[in-house]
């Protein structure tokens, strides 16, 4: 890593939880920062997720169960887990860092105002969804999301993203990723309910929680526990070469590129 970047990282403020947590008093329908009014969903709830990275084992059960549950096209993901190799600055000791990612269901979602047809909207329970009846597949929202959490579904030709498995939450069930989290890292729940597990964990760990790219002022509602603050911005990491080789060394590309 170059020294300039390292020093920049060093200056990054650890995001305090207070700045990112839902302003519970916010008037959901008022519309903030050019956000159109929220509609649909249960106005008494605000869903969020807490991911305890210490308990993430990087097994990708979430990735696959989400993919099946939500019938995503092969090679497109509503959630996934990135795996990084990190090195100790002084001792050179090396360890693995797992970073599960999904839509942050931001309090100030940049994907919503850019939609020319109001297909993408935020529900009153905080879940950001896409109305596929309206969506024209223009991908403005895909480009507006700083977290790469959206994609154009090749089959429906509409924007696709994590809905916190709203269809399961509405049935009183858990999202596929939470249900299948082997290490027990993912916690979902209603943050307006002080008795919910997520509310209790937020109050217990408040100061230790971080969100991704806080400087974008999107106010993500996916909180990470055990986060290394240098990962809250897009990590400067040498990527794994994803070109697949055939047995003779010929590059085959990626099977599921659309």
């Amino acid at each position: 890593m170059d020294p300039i970047r390292r020093s920049l990282l060093g200056q990054l403020a650890r995001l305090s939880a207070g700045a990112a947590l839902v302003p519970l008093s916010s008037v959901a329908n008022a519309g903030i920062n050019q956000q159109p009014p929220r509609r649909e969903g249960d106005p008494t709830k605000r869903y969020g997720m807490l991911i305890d990275l210490r308990q993430c084992i990087g097994c990708q059960a979430c990735t696959v169960s989400c993919h099946i549950e939500n019938a995503a096209p092969l090679g497109s993901f509503r959630t996934t887990v990135a795996q990084y190799e990190v090195e100790h600055q002084e001792t050179g000791e090396v360890a693995t860092f797992m970073l599960p990612r999904l839509c942050n269901h931001c309090e100030n979602p940049p994907c919503v105002p850019v939609c020319p047809v109001e297909a993408t909207f935020q529900r009153q329970d905080g879940i950001v969804v896409v109305d596929s009846d309206r969506c024209v597949g223009c991908a403005y929202c895909v480009n507006a999301c700083p977290y790469d959490a959206r994609f154009i579904n090749e089959r429906t030709q509409t924007a696709d993203k994590c809905t916190f498995c709203a269809h399961r939450l509405e049935a009183g069930l858990l999202p596929a990723c939470v249900e299948s989290c082997v290490g027990g890292a993912r916690i979902i729940g209603d943050m307006r309910d002080p008795a919910s597990q997520i509310s209790r964990m937020i109050s217990e760990h408040g100061d230790e929680l971080m969100v991704l790219q806080p400087e974008k002022h999107t106010m993500p509602q996916v909180f990470y526990l055990g986060m290394d603050e240098r990962f809250v911005t897009r990590p400067h990491a040498e990527p794994v070469a994803l070109e697949v080789l055939d047995p003779h060394g010929k590059e085959m590309g990626y099977e599921f590129h659309h």
Partner: peptide, 8 residues
């Protein structure tokens, strides 16, 4: 206190 070395 480790820094990222590469994505694996």
């Amino acid at each position: 206190r480790r820094f990222m070395k590469g994505a694996v």
